[in-house]
Computed example of a mutant assay.
Amino acid sequence: MQVLFKISRQQQQSAVKVQTYSLDVDPSTTILDCLNLIKWQQDGSLAFRKNCRNTICGSCSMRINHRAALACQQNVKAEVARSYSAWNKQNGADSDRENPDSIPVIEIAPMGNMPVIKDLVVEMDQFWQKLDQVEPYVSSASRQVPEREFLQSPEDRSKLDQMGNCILCGACYSDCNALPANGSFVGPHALAKAHRLLADTRDQATEHRLEQYNQDIQGVWGCTRCFNCNTVCPMGVAPLDQISKIKSQVLANPTLPDSRPLRHRRVLVDLVQEGGWIDERKFGLKVVGNNFKDLPGLFSLVPLAGQMLRRQKLPIKFDASTGTDEVRGLIEAVKKRQSKTASQSESTR
């Protein structure tokens, strides 16, 4: 099977150029093996990372057909099918119609949200630094038990399985939509590891961790819930799910310092529970103005309120939505379930 590989090539601080290579390979050949063939037989200057070739080390993470993936995990057949599907969707063709190009194309590029060193090799220093910010190790106090091993039951250990599958390949970090707009966000990889520590019965720093992860848009509130991290994760860690679990623990903890993101979540739910939808008049005052306690926040609302008044977008009165009782019942049921789950989790620690 003949395939064209369009590879983005780049040196530090230089413009990107796309170079095309043609290979005749078996459809089951992995993308990493194809890159090896290109390097060994056509262009020895092509740079990319690799190691285990068995989806264990995460070294060969790159963008394949516009999304982060492991080159050792993806094969030619699947990627050609993906290319056809993308072309059909773009051109409104039937799903069983093939790309009119006589030779299928697979596009390869370096991971996103990281500076390029050369070709498909990226600088990952910031990736590791942000992981370190969440203190991804069991608290030292928990390890100070010299008279015995600090063992866990099989049930407690099983709670860590999903997060423990993370191989730190950088795929979720590469395709995270929040990072380009918010450089302080620690990233989905770090927060997935963060939840592993919160779920670990040996760790004794839960309060400190929740306070740390609750910090403005640096922690869990920086996530835009774009779902990209779940989509590209090659190991099924589902970072967004872990971030949501941390948020649930933060919201259930009344001792944490108040913050605007925390008020945003709580006020939104309270207003919907009260009237079926959000009363915009109260929302700004409660969240940004902190119930008239945050004067700079209140003054920041004045220009927006003026624009809304001029455009008749500021509601004079608020009418509850139809079905408010049903909405209220759903919210109350979810809160009871979350409270029960939190109590069970606390009793097992």
Rank of each mutant, 00 (worst) to 15 (best):
L35D: 10
S45P: 04
C34F: 00
S45M: 03
R49W: 03
R67S: 14
K50Q: 15
Q41N: 14
K39E: 12
R67K: 15
I56C: 09
I64G: 05
C60N: 03
N51Y: 14
G58L: 09
R63M: 13
L37F: 00
S28M: 09
S61C: 15
G58V: 09
I56V: 15
S45K: 02
L35V: 07
T30C: 10
H66P: 00
D33H: 09
R49A: 13
R53H: 14
R63D: 06
T30A: 11
I64L: 15
M62C: 07
L37H: 05
V25Y: 04
T30W: 03
A47F: 04
R67V: 05
L37T: 12
G44L: 03
D43N: 11
I38E: 03
F48W: 06
C52H: 13
S61G: 15
N36C: 08
A47V: 09
G58K: 06
I31G: 11
C60E: 05
S28Y: 05
C60R: 01
T30S: 15
Q42E: 10
T55A: 13
D26K: 08
D33G: 01
P27T: 00
W40R: 13
D43C: 06
V25L: 14
G58A: 11
W40C: 02
I38H: 03
L46Y: 03
C57E: 13
L35M: 15
Q41S: 12
T29F: 01
S59L: 06
